[in-house]
Design a protein around this nucleic acid. Sequence first.
DNA 1: AGGTGGACCCGAACGC
DNA 2: TGCGTTCGGGTCCACC
Length: 276
Amino acid sequence: MPELPEVETVRRLLEPALAGRRIVAAEILDSRLTRPFAPGLVATELVGQHVVAVQRRGKYLSIVFESGRVLLVHLRMTGSFRVAPRGSYSPSAHRRAVLSMDNGSDVAYRDVRRFGTWELFEPGELDPYLEARLGPEPFARTVTGHWLVERLSGRRAPLKAVLLDQRVLAGLGNIYVDEALWRARLHPLRPASSLGLAEGTSIVRAVRAVLRLGISRQGATLRDYVAPDGDEGAMQDEFRAYGREGEPCDRCRAPLARIVVAGRGTTFCPRCQPEP
DNA sequence: AGGTGGACCCGAACGC
DNA sequence: TGCGTTCGGGTCCACC
């Protein structure tokens, strides 16, 4: 499930493969990918575009062209890229698109569940789109314990629900929220507005720590996630909470518990993360 | 207005 | 063994 660390890993591998290159052919095989626009139309617009950068904002990837246009990609749950020399890779099930670059490499996009999206933006359109949907990057200097406590004041929703809200902080998903709450020793059902300054500070610290660890392990590979070079991540070996229901807590040995919060499976330590 | 739950999608895991 | 059912997960949208 690509969250910030997985998307950042993809970005880091995609950028050197794409920047400075021109798209010489584009094939989009799934009409859902570019909805509501016809795939053929988008493919035609992509041909000839010259890539200058690949950027990340939250869980979004943007492929920035010299023309000022931007292809905004969201991998959702099962989207992945594969960069390889043309003809060197075998056709894969669930391939949804292929971009052929002017240096002879192909960028193949695969998405089992077809939730991912490709959207082409005209110059100047992207920033307002992202600003309407996303809060600050978790590593931004403006993000402090004090800022978070202020931001959450008046919100009765469970702590976990607000951390999953991309308008609060950009880039967290189910996995890294569970990991961060375990580290911060905070119960996922704590009302968001009940946080004190020390707790806000420890959330910010925990969120950054798990994201940094995730990036350094090149993401977590559970089912479908692979980096563009075909490598799997290793973050799944570092999980302290996510997916470990019933296993002993690494801090206190109490069995980890599982509940549903904001419609999401949530694993936590009932002893280290005390009931609100 | 803020919060919750369903829709979207499909393979894997589970239950009988 | 084979079939049907449930689950998950990010975002949007309808509804409370």
